[in-house]
Design a protein around this nucleic acid. Structure first.
Length: 214
DNA sequence: CTCCCGATAT
DNA sequence: ATATCAGGAG
């Protein structure tokens, strides 16, 4: 691990000490539903949606018996609601019937669930089982990794491989959480606030921003 | 690659 | 008006 990367890790650790999931949930099953809903949607909106969803259908068994229209209505505001409702329903059936209500504990099993890709599976593994088989690469992690030039790749899968090669496995879970917080707070997609960013001296993109003539 | 899809900031 | 939000499937 080179010195720039260890500085980045250290600063992120100091500025974002807590690495908790922002999604609200009571049970592992509810986390699975919340993470599926969080695709292309802010966690804040998911958290405004899930309380009523989980009040109506709190367990995999009850969600598996829910009318799809009811799920669609309850999650409508998170977007992609037809896909997400179908995925949550199918997931609930599989979790109830095949896994007897337990959430699978390997990446391989998780990505077989409908609506669960590597990003979602890595969130679930890290959050429920504290396991890192991979690294959560969402839109924030992808964007910040590129800006910090930790990768030259453009697809989530390649970026994940690059990061796995660079970072010690013990840092994988916390790294994603911290990068996501930083992406929300400062290194915003549309208008990064490089002038007040504590990673300025480690960030090639901040240097470029600074030398723009505008 | 396209499609799914509502809410919000700019 | 348009880009973007803790993406995944066909």
């Amino acid at each position: 691990m080179n010195s720039s990367i260890s500085k980045i890790l250290k600063k992120l650790q100091v500025h974002y000490p807590q690495t908790q999931c922002f999604l609200k949930y009571q049970t592992p099953f509810q986390l699975v539903c919340a993470v599926i809903l969080s695709a292309q949607c802010t966690d804040e909106r998911v958290n405004r949606t899930t309380p009523l969803l989980f009040k109506n259908f709190p367990t995999p068994e009850k969600m598996a018996r829910a009318p799809i229209k009811a799920i669609e209505t309850l999650i409508h505001s998170t977007g992609f609601y037809r896909h997400k409702a179908k995925n949550i329903l199918e997931c609930s059936k599989i979790i109830h019937h095949t896994y007897h209500g337990q959430i699978p504990s390997t990446l391989e099993e998780l990505v077989r669930l409908p609506g669960v890709g590597r990003k979602t599976a890595n969130v679930i593994l890290g959050e429920i089982y504290k396991k890192s088989e991979g690294i959560v690469v969402d839109t924030h992690v992808a964007r910040l990794s590129q800006r910090l030039q930790l990768t030259q790749s453009s697809t989530a899968e390649k970026i994940e491989q690059d990061l796995m090669g660079i970072l010690p496995q013990s840092e994988w879970i916390a790294f994603s959480h911290r990068l996501i917080q930083h992406g929300r707070n400062l290194c915003i997609a549309r208008k990064p606030r490089c002038n007040i960013c504590f990673l300025q001296s480690q960030c090639p993109s901040a240097f470029l921003e600074k030398n723009k003539s505008n």
